[in-house]
Simulated assay, not measured.
Amino acid sequence: MKRIRKTHPPREFLEWLKENQELDCSYAALQGKEAHTVLKTHLLREQGFLCAYTGVSISEEDSHIEHIKPQSVCRTVPNPGKTYLDDVEYRNMVACFPQDGGDVSHGYGAPIKGGWWNEEQFVSPCQEDCERRFIYGWGGKVSPAQENDNAANKTIDILGLNAQRLRDRRYRAIVGFFGFSRKHKTKELTKQDAKVLLTIIGKPNSTGKLREFCFIFEQLLPRHIK
């Protein structure tokens, strides 16, 4: 899981909130509006075009706006001092795979989480320590960094982060990145190149995109160097 550092909401979204605060200022009313499109693009860029939960590469076409705290448990009336509902709270929204947030056919990610919610038992990608809470193996498996971290364990389970399809995707990425594939006769990554990559792997490229699973490579590169 890659930490998301939330920035300021886009101007169009803030203007929509202001214009609709006395009308219907809910996520349902926002959908289909230009402000919704701008918001989604903003979230994708904020995340380096990686799914907030799984770290797979995403785009406008294969992602949706996900509510970390599900809409089903968001407040139906504004909080004190607010004029809009919690389901349009910017810090509660991230971009996730797939396009249809209810499509469970992939077996992992946001659709698997569905309407489940327990704030104390969920590691959010917006939490400062989220990257340190998980450890990745060479075979693509993810585990809690600390065995007694119940929230990390629950998050892995509730998001299906060890679903076979996702594990296989991580494994293929690891093999390709480090050049471990005998089948394709790739050259293994040298320690010198690994040291260089370690300094840049967590940075977006010229188009603002992060490499798929870059946070995994950041963990594995030091092990490879040793």
Rank of each mutant, 00 (worst) to 15 (best):
M1S: 14
R5A: 05
K6G: 06
E15V: 12
L17F: 04
Q21A: 13
L23H: 09
A28E: 14
A29S: 15
Q31H: 07
G32A: 14
K33C: 11
V38E: 02
L39G: 02
K40F: 07
T41Q: 11
T41I: 11
H42L: 08
L43R: 05
R45D: 04
E46P: 08
F49C: 13
C51D: 05
T54F: 09
S57Y: 00
I58E: 02
E60I: 09
E60D: 13
E61A: 12
H64D: 09
I65Y: 01
H67L: 10
G81H: 08
Y84S: 14
A95V: 00
Q99C: 03
D100P: 00
S105H: 11
H106S: 12
G114S: 13
W116C: 00
W117F: 15
S124V: 04
P125H: 01
E128D: 10
D129W: 09
R132M: 11
F134K: 02
A145M: 04
Q146M: 12
E147H: 06
D149F: 05
I156N: 01
I156Y: 03
I158F: 01
L159Q: 02
N162L: 07
R165M: 11
E188Y: 05
L189H: 08
T190R: 12
I200G: 00
G208H: 01
K209P: 03
E212V: 03
I216N: 05
P222R: 06
